[in-house]
């Protein structure tokens, strides 16, 4: 009897561990795909509708570089962020620069950009792209098995958030960025080159988006329309999080990741998505300025 009980406990523990891992993975992937958007929105007040396509291009850059023989980790952690970051600079120069402070116009312009990038990717890469399988082996938890890559995604997301926080909080670059965002006129009269700060911020947001696209590519695969699958979730996360980049997006990711994964595990995947949307609707009804519009206002 004791043995059976122990077995039951063991089984429950396994189930609990694997469920927690699933939930953490859900949070991490949501946090990763939203951070770049949050930086561009939170700091520049620009709504980038081409965010999904930035993710898609990050994924394609990773796959193209890997198949060209570049080391997988270099392609993922350096190559893809650099390519999408540079694309971000071009976009900022050509499209965004003329539209700061005009939210509706930026939405229209970046939406057009989104359609353009999707079409361009269809022409350049097509839908015949080879996949890359996730590296690392598997982790065995009792009767369950989970890819070690999921744990890598969780750790990477935590590292990215931590380093973004450290940069914004403790470096001179972060100080200048925060100052410019808080009061652009004052910062510029104190000798800060506003345009340069905007460009660098846009580069950073785009590069983080490229990184997220590359990290998720081995798991979700990439096609020219991949961005559509991410855009809604990342927007909901950022808007619900509010204007505070790290705290807001982080909290919203934790909340939505937990709700949607838990619902998906307990019921069916369809309900997971529905639960995410429902939570967002309820939250925005009571906190129209997002979570950090009321709490953690002075966070980062």
């Amino acid at each position: 009897m004791a043995l059976v009980l122990h077995d039951m406990n063991g089984l429950l523990m396994d189930l609990l561990a694997i469920t927690l891992l699933e939930i953490f993975y859900g949070i991490a992937s949501l946090a990763l795909i939203s951070l770049g958007l949050a930086i561009i929105f939170g700091m520049l007040r620009v709504i980038n509708f081409a965010h999904g396509e930035f993710l898609m291009i990050g994924g394609f850059s990773f796959i193209m570089l890997t198949s060209a023989g570049v080391n997988m980790w270099i392609a993922m952690l350096i190559g893809a962020p650099l390519i999408v970051g540079l694309l971000g600079i071009v976009v900022e120069r050509v499209v965004i620069r003329n539209l700061y402070g005009r939210i509706v116009e930026t939405i229209l312009a970046t939406w057009g950009l989104s359609l353009f990038l999707m079409g361009a990717a269809s022409l350049l890469f097509g839908y015949f792209q080879r996949g890359v399988s996730p590296p690392f082996g598997t982790l065995k938890i009792g009767n369950y098995q989970e890819g070690v890559y999921s744990i890598f995604v969780i750790v990477l997301a935590a590292a990215v958030y931590l380093s973004t926080y450290l940069v914004l909080r403790y470096t001179k670059l972060g100080l200048i960025a925060r100052a410019t965002m808080q009061n652009p006129e004052m910062a510029s009269s104190l000798g800060v080159a506003r345009e340069k700060v905007y460009a660098v911020t846009f580069f950073c947001g785009a590069a983080l988006t490229g990184l997220a696209g590359a990290v998720l590519a081995p798991i979700a695969g990439v096609v020219p329309t991949s961005g559509l699958a991410y855009i809604a979730r990342s927007f909901i996360t950022v808007i619900t999080g509010g204007a505070t980049v790290i705290a807001g997006t982080g909290i919203a990711s934790v909340l939505f990741g937990t709700v949607s994964q838990l619902t998906a595990i307990l019921t069916r995947p369809v309900w997971g998505e529905a639960a995410l949307l429902l939570t967002a609707v309820i939250l925005l009804r009571f906190l129209p300025a997002g979570i950090t519009g009321r709490y953690f206002r002075n966070g980062l």
Binding site: I18, T19, E22, E146, S150, A229, I265, P269, G272
Partner: peptide
């Protein structure tokens, strides 16, 4: 749904 791309819970 046709846009579902996360199968972790199902695999478990």
């Amino acid at each position: 749904p046709l846009d579902a791309s996360s199968f972790g819970a199902t695999i478990n």
